[in-house]
Amino acid sequence: MHHLVIDRWSRGSSSLHQRDPRAKLAALLVFLVVLSTTRPGAQWAFVAYAVLLILTANLARLPILGLASRAALVLPFSATFALLTWWSGDSLRALALAEKSFLSGTAALLLVGTTPLTGWTAALESWRVPRMLILVIQFVYRYLFVIAEQVQRMRWAALCRGPKQRGFRLAAGLVGVLFARSWQRADGIYHAMLARGFRGRFVPAPPAPFRSSDALFLSTCLAGCLAIRMLL
């Protein structure tokens, strides 16, 4: 599955993997802001951004094609709008829509492909994102695949009892049962938490030190992005 690939990538050991998640998240934001404010039609700038991303992916030892094919998930949406824009006569803008959304998606993938979920959620937390939201993100991600597999098994079970069973009510019943099992699972998790001494508060892990190599990485990214934005 898709997520497994990203998880595997994020456990790599390249120098980019070892950078502080805060530095990588900040670099991502810088890149996205610079990209967002680039005027449509600055084709050389878009080429330079792409080269920058390819170099970074290379540094992270991530497969370029794999990254591109996953980032292409944004294309159905942006291609639709790009076509509409083209149709209304603004071909430069149409191209820019597709380019910007694709490059943005690739950049986000570079972050999660080099940083495990615990890393970037810790970075968010150190930036004062509410702890409750961080916990919910971690729990959603943890149980996403458990419950998705459950859906798959339930669909197979329904199919085995008759391939023509695809009514509205059947789907609703499926969602209902899924809900019930999820609820019971949440109860089970809570019991397991209490059994290990949970007292209503998660104890946060201490933040790792922000090293000079992280600062160097961030300033290189900043300089690269700004140079492209100013010069091209």
């Binding site: 409750m132 916990l135 729990f139 943890r142 149980y143 419950i147 859906v151 669909r155 509205f168 949440a186």
Partner: peptide, 21 residues
């Protein structure tokens, strides 16, 4: 807290169920 997380995962998964219309 676990309930909110599991419900989020539930919504993610429930979006996989097709409702024929």
């Amino acid at each position: 807290i676990p309930l909110l997380g599991v419900m989020g995962a539930f919504v993610f998964a429930a979006q996989m169920v097709n409702f024929p219309v």
